[in-house]
């Protein structure tokens, strides 16, 4: 099956296999054993992620500032030697807050992205495995959930429940596993019909053996690619919720929260309260997308087209 088979046709729905930028999507599948070209996307993506993790976790040990004490005498100061990125409306150091707030963004994003991928993989694999009426019903549930904009569902859920980081992980994962479910179900159906799987079955291999030894390893690449996109999306969704005032509650704060605080006094032109947090989000999300695309390249040639 070539990559440009039916699944890559431009009818592709949002949420189905997203056409990623260039790499792998419009390239013929290489033989699995062929020498792999250098994978700059993966390297650059991982490097940016490593830097951001160091920045958020090691940074506060070097750049020590009190990021909890509100001090209105210091509010909205422009960047200076004492405050490298200035201060926010509460008089808190922006760079210091960027580091600690980043921990929350990264942790909630990682947990929610992983959880979404797990739920989606299980749902999709079970639907593809059962087939028939169960499959049809499970996929209609996915269709129905797709009809609601994620952010609107999140608004409702965070209005019902008091948002804590743990709750946000479940709520974000609970609304974003749909694309993974469709993807994995498609892969389970495709893999089930592949010659090597049929051959194993014909030679007397049991169903469990097929699933554990053949289907799971081959679907692993697909899921790994999807996890990085899920984490990227979860970070943006968390930031959006915080921006709307329905994310983590004070004194906790994340990057979306910081932009929201800056946007309140946007007419005063305090750019340092908005640009750094935005840049941090974009860096992490672009890096995760690069990693996803790089992984896709790396797994290209496996039995399921990407």
């Amino acid at each position: 099956m070539t990559v440009r088979g039916r699944h890559a046709a431009p009818v592709a729905r949002p949420g189905l296999v997203r056409p990623r930028l260039g790499t792998g999507h419009d390239r013929p599948v290489q033989p699995a054993a062929a020498a792999r070209p250098a994978n700059p996307a993966l390297r650059v993506g991982l490097a940016i992620l490593a830097i951001m993790v160091l920045f958020c976790y090691i940074g506060p040990l070097i750049y020590r500032r009190d990021i909890l004490q509100v001090n209105l005498l210091l509010s909205n100061r422009a960047p200076s030697a004492a405050h490298l990125l200035g201060t926010d409306p509460d008089g808190i150091d922006v760079l210091g807050r960027l580091m600690t707030g980043g921990q929350l963004s990264l942790e909630v994003g990682l947990a929610a992205g992983l959880l979404a991928a797990i739920i989606g993989s299980l749902w999709g694999a079970i639907a593809g495995y059962l087939g028939g009426a169960a499959d049809a019903f499970m996929m209609r549930v996915v269709d129905a959930a797709y009809a609601f904009p994620v952010i609107v569902l999140l608004l409702l859920l965070t209005a019902i429940f008091q948002p804590t980081p743990e709750l946000l992980v479940f709520v974000i994962a609970g609304t974003s596993w749909l694309s993974t479910a469709r993807l994995v179900r498609g892969a389970a159906l495709t893999l089930g019909n592949r010659e090597f799987v049929q051959a194993v079955l014909a030679m007397g291999g049991g169903r469990l053996r097929v699933i554990v030894r053949h289907i799971a390893p081959n679907a692993f690449g697909l899921i790994a690619v999807n996890v990085s996109f899920q984490i990227a999306d979860a970070i943006v969704v968390l930031a959006t919720l915080s921006y709307l005032g329905l994310g983590v509650q004070p004194p906790s704060s994340d990057w979306g929260d910081m932009i929201a605080a800056g946007a309140q006094s946007i007419y005063s032109g305090y750019w340092w309260e908005i640009y750094p947090a935005g840049a941090a989000i974009i860096l992490v999300v672009v890096a995760l997308n690069l990693v996803g695309d790089g992984l896709r390249d790396r797994f290209a040639g496996s039995p399921i087209g990407y």
Binding site: L21, A232, V236, A239, T240, Y243, G256, I259, A260, G262, A263, I266, G269, W271, I274, Y275, A277, G278, I281, I282, V285, V286, N289, L290
Partner: peptide
């Protein structure tokens, strides 16, 4: 890539600024 990674509220804030 950047357009996709950029949260819309950040893009809007930048345009306002």
């Amino acid at each position: 890539y950047v357009g996709y990674g950029m949260p819309s509220f950040f893009l809007g804030s930048v345009l306002i600024l």
